[in-house]
């Protein structure tokens, strides 16, 4: 994951500063600021948290504590395409672990993480209810069934071209 450098996102940084200025004088400014920051950047990078900590004179540990408490905040970036590999029983027995392994190899990320180019987020999900098509994976709303590890590259290429 390439390091997020705040200075490289001038427009977003300006927007963030505008938000901070708007809420700084209010009581309990942190939640509104984090909500807007998440909207601006798509997630809450450490650098953004540090910037907010500095601006509000709050320890970064407090900011991190709040960012990781609420399920809507993410300290990791999410990709454009969310890949969900079903780990339900039927898929598991039909080799979904092999599918997952192939995806880990192809994308270079672990389940829960996102590729550097921000294109794919890999998740292991609960049963998708398509057991007749096991093993199954979904990429956003598209369902792929009866998968074999050798199918993975071809499927991913479709999304890489977009």
């Amino acid at each position: 994951m390439s390091r997020f450098i705040l200075a490289e996102h001038a427009e977003k940084l300006a927007e963030l500063n505008r938000i901070i200025d708007e809420y700084k004088g209010k009581e309990g400014p942190l939640m509104p600021i984090l909500t807007k920051a998440q909207e601006i950047f798509g997630y809450l990078p450490y650098e953004v948290q540090a910037h907010i900590a500095e601006a509000l004179d709050i320890p970064i540990s407090d900011i991190y504590g709040v960012a990781t408490f609420y399920s809507q905040f993410s300290v990791k970036p999410k990709g454009r395409y969310k890949i969900g590999v079903c780990m339900g029983t039927a898929c598991y027995v039909k080799g979904s672990q092999l599918i997952l392994n192939e995806l880990i190899k192809e994308l270079g990320v672990q389940p829960g993480d996102t590729t550097e180019d921000g294109r794919f987020t890999l998740e292991a999900t609960r049963c998708l209810g398509a057991c007749g098509l096991a093993p199954v994976m979904m990429i956003n709303d598209d369902v792929y069934g009866r998968l074999k590890p050798e199918d993975i590259k071809g499927i991913l290429d479709k999304y890489r071209d977009k």
């Binding site: 939640m31 509104p32 709050i58 399920s71 809507q72 905040f73």
Partner: peptide, 22 residues
């Protein structure tokens, strides 16, 4: 003041802590 996806913030003291930015 918007929540951020925590069921426990419906509890009165948790709600108040959340408004405070905790």
């Amino acid at each position: 003041r918007l929540g951020a996806g925590a069921f426990v913030c419906g509890e009165e003291t948790a709600l108040m802590r959340s408004i405070e930015g905790k």
